[in-house]
Amino acid sequence: MIAPDEPVAASANNVVIRVRGLKVGFGDRLVMDGLDLDVYRGEVLGLVGASGAGKSVFTRSVLGLLPKQAGMIEVYGLDIDRLTMGERRRVERRWGVLFQQGALFSGLTVKQNIQAPMREHLDLSPRLRDELAMLKISLVGLPLDAANKYPAELSGGMIKRAALARALALDPDLLFLDEPTSGLDPIGAGDFDDLIATLQRTLGLTVFMVTHDLDSLYAICDRVAVLGQGRVSAVGPIAELLLSTDPWIHSYFHGKRGAGRETVFRLGAQGEAR
């Protein structure tokens, strides 16, 4: 296991995503009501919250897939509402998104899926495109012969890896992961956590991760943001959140499923202190 990096100092130019006063709703029901959140450069931020609290809605509104009713979203210091088409494309090229179900194009092979953004956005020779696609495939730990398979021929874990490879195709600095370990077996999920941590360190990525997986939170997240009542009710390193008195946060981390991991985490921290 790779220990999480030291949290990055919070200075203004280190903020990759800045959200202020975000309001998103459907009809007259507000899902996000005045949400504020900063994501710092080089950190892994985990977003947790009850089912239906709006984790996916939040991610989708940052990505520009859902219209917002009020508030401001800045990515790399650029207000995403005031972008020209060219700036918008440049921002979109700098982020990679891993959707929950993978969202691989079903009519393309894995290799073609990875090459799709390269083909659309960049002027690369076919040879380099092939080589880079194969590099991404080996980076995410897929066997090389998966390259020519169609998504329908892959297992769930392989689809996640292939989708991650596609998200990494343009070497983004910012990676959005929507429940990356859901549907994987514990070993596969642990491997996937390691993979994300390794990639995050080697490529210097900023990772924004929606997850329900307590193991992921403990293993790779530098900070965790808790979503509740349409806003971020708490944000900080997991050690801080463990001390929180908020009833929901308490039962999330100290409930039946959280308690065992918490003990392991505490023991590990004590071991390191010695």
Binding site: M134, L135, L139, N148
Partner: peptide
């Protein structure tokens, strides 16, 4: 680290 992770290797499939 980058050079180690992304070192050139044959990608024949």
């Amino acid at each position: 680290i980058l050079l180690r992770e992304a070192h050139f290797r044959s990608t024949e499939t």
